[in-house]
Design a binder for these strands. Sequence first.
RNA 1: UGGGGCGUCGUCAAGUGGUAAGACACAGGACUUUGGUUCCUGCACUCGGAGGUUCGAAUCCUCCCGCCCCAGCCA
Length: 571
Amino acid sequence: MASSATPPQPSGSTNFIKQIIEADIASGKNNGRVATRFPPEPNGYLHIGHAKSICLNFGLAKEFGGACHLRFDDTDPAKESMEYVESIQQDVRWLGFDWQGRRFFASDYFEALYDFAVSLIRRGKAYVDHLSADEIRDYRGTLTAPGRNSPYRERSIEENMELFQRMRAGEFRDGECVLRAKIDMASPNIVLRDPTLYRIKHVHHYRTGGTWCIYPMYDFTHCLSDMMEGITHSICTLEFENNRALYDWVLGALETPCHPQQIEFARLNLSYTVLSKRKLIELVERGIVSGWDDPRMPTISGYRRRGYTPEALRSFCDRIGVARADSTVDIGLLEHCLREDLNKRAPRFMAVLQPLKVTLVNYPEGREEELEAVNNPEDPSMGSRRVPFSREIYIEREDFLEDPPRKFFRLAPGREVRLRYAYFIRCEEVVKDPTSGEVTELRCTYDPTTRGGDAPDGRRVQGTLHWVSAAHAAPAEVRLYDHLFMRENPGEVEEGRHFTDYVNPGSLKVLQGCRVEPSLANAAPGSHCQFERIGYFCADPKESRPGRPVFNRSATLKDTWAKIAKQVKGR
RNA sequence: UGGGGCGUCGUCAAGUGGUAAGACACAGGACUUUGGUUCCUGCACUCGGAGGUUCGAAUCCUCCCGCCCCAGCCA
């Protein structure tokens, strides 16, 4: 079955960031050099919103002959761990990107950052504040009212130097004091009202252990990390727009030799799902999903397990574009990208999800034969395989209707259809359970002259059904996934409701007792395929076993009949 | 109602004073041994609204309206 290995290609389309970079190169800024970075905090798993950022940053570097760094923004020891670092690396690699050894950790800069903080104090631009967190909030003012200066704001440089050293030395408890930038408590931009630069946390850090008890804040760390790494374009999402003034202030105050440019773009929103880390954590912790890699999750690991390919995710990221307008992308586009990719590459198989037994009454008992089936009509180089056929087969329950509506092309009493790659069959008799009335078996005749699927007399049938030979088919478990939420925008919560109220109860349907053609019995975990007429599936990477395959539905095929059926029914 | 942003087809999104790309979705049709794929056709006389400048405005100006972000010792 198909596996993925195609490397990323430049996208060809344009966006405002490319235009900025092109202008910078044209003007000789940074000597024409381009360096970007993808800077996740290792406190959770990556989701498709991160994929947008990864494709953007690595894509830009590739397109302009630059480098893209992978940097872990690990300045909050309470939430971070190596487990997350590893999963993030795995996901970035799986997406097809290579940081070429340029992996950095903000925590590796703690000493340098400390020195920068000392330098700021020496310049009279930072001070140690003994106000409590509550007091600081109080002094900050509001959106419409200016803040007030802290009573500790005018401490001498010497005193601040000593105090900051003592902070580092562990002489204060958590929250007792902080280091603040001395900017402007009346600034209309609240970010600039003497922001906190360092806080005290007597907490073990997953990399630096107990070495530090003071940790730098994002705004202080990020710009300096970018600067030290020689990043030219520091691309982040829109909510950091107000922070840009502080980014520039820190680098300006320290008179750093270079000054990366922060550029913001709109984060991704996807219909029928949530993309905020907080909400994803809640889904995992409350057991609403089975974990970060539940195939319904919009995480990279969830999509991987669902059967999405890196190519499909990258194609999606290319197509959605990069702009500054808040937007919500139709999840249908993501599904389209997967189908587009898998249509070309996924080998086809026959699998019957809800079996209905069919006995071919005129087919000799005990006889078996093998029929040739094409592996992928889109790609002749993928060849063909042989599929066993016999007197008893299974077809899909929904491919038979005793009383078919208009435009139903499938099997019905007295009607003739084609079994794919096999024979025409005609339904002669319907066997029902005498008590429940449920159809338990169809007795059909087959036309031996139609072997392979064509009638020598030229007669046509309207429907072609997939099937498996009852004696040869392998049992399988199949998991059908649908949108995790019933609402297009589950983040928009009504009064008195919670976003989890909108979880789609039908987002997972587990089907036992499915029957798949024998060649699927030992499907390699993680491999992709198409079940003809049904959809694209992936052998579950974690739980599928040789002989006991488990398949996840990655996406349905377009179902024109479902649309028609709705219309027919509506009349 | 402080400051910073953003409003172009149902959804994304190009467009940068010269007369509205493309994609998804949707609707028709052709082909078809997957009601799949593919192919063809249609789908914004108008760019949040109102004025103004101009021979000419989605692009420039003015006012208005709507939405998003910021008051963590999170990132």
